[in-house]
Amino acid sequence: MMWLFMETARATGVVERVHSYYASLGLLDWPGITYHGVYWPGVSEVAAQQSTAFGLPPEQHFEVTRTITGPDGTRMPHSLLTEIATYGRFPRLGSKYCTKSAKETVVSASWTPFVTRRKKELGRPVRILKVQGMRRDESRSRSTLSPYRNVLANGARVVDEWLPALEWTTDAVKEWCDSMPIARHWTYDWYPVLATGWAPPAAPARCAASPPSGICCSRSAGGRALQRSTSWWKAFAATAAATTGGSMT
């Protein structure tokens, strides 16, 4: 998605107005790992690397996270793990409470200082184009999305949403990724030893916190996502530590 958008931004000469955002899930973010002596970066690192690789200066990439007021009155991270403890279950298809609270809402809130400043300078609501990478192939609900729509309009900001990759098929995405020297996160390859190929077709699309067999927003067959994810993680951790000498960092 970002490659498609950055091509347009360069063509229209507005790269300096582009910001990329990564919404951290705190402790549940996939970490970087060392496997067979090779370091594989975590999702936060990959997001920053990809932003730079697509031509955006590092100072225009931002990592944001949800915060709450701590016991001492200062702001502290509000991890997705806290949300899971509150709800008593992981996010799942039909109840993806993480999508808004831990991702979209966090990014939108981070725009507020910029919006406040620019509104004073412009004397009108600030126009923002929110670009996301959803595709029709990903789910039944996303198959009905509009490629361009207005999602918010008030006295401070007018936000439009553009989905440039909406019509891309999964096969087209894989073909593009395999042809470009842009790193993808290692979980898309099942685990690092399979980094020359993609995860088996049964593995669902994963977010920053979801193991390949599906712990978050899972569509795994049989609905045994949590059980399968836990089993996968234990097996992988044991293999990495005992067999290969790999370590989680």
Rank of each mutant, 00 (worst) to 15 (best):
S79A: 13
P147G: 10
K130N: 13
S139E: 07
S229Y: 02
W198P: 08
L226H: 12
A195G: 12
W40Q: 03
G94H: 11
I128C: 08
V38H: 07
R149V: 10
P201M: 00
E167F: 05
E104M: 08
S101T: 09
A153M: 14
A23T: 04
E83V: 02
Y191Q: 10
T196M: 09
G155I: 00
A235V: 02
F5N: 01
F62T: 10
L166A: 03
E167Q: 14
M76K: 13
L194P: 00
R157A: 15
S143C: 06
S95Q: 10
C177T: 05
L28T: 07
A11Q: 13
S229N: 03
C177V: 12
G155K: 14
V115S: 03
S229W: 04
P31L: 08
Q60C: 12
K174V: 00
T187Q: 14
R92L: 01
T8S: 10
R10H: 12
S95N: 13
V107T: 03
Q50D: 02
A102W: 01
V38A: 11
A199I: 04
S51G: 13
T65V: 07
A165F: 05
T187R: 13
A102D: 07
A48W: 02
T34R: 10
I182W: 10
Y191C: 06
A203M: 11
G26A: 01
S139P: 03
A203E: 00
C217W: 15
E63R: 13
R206S: 13
M76C: 07
C216G: 00
T187G: 05
S213T: 15
S220K: 05
C217Y: 15
G133M: 08
T196W: 03
K96P: 01
T67F: 08
R135Q: 15
Y39V: 08
A238D: 14
E121C: 02
R142I: 01
S79D: 15
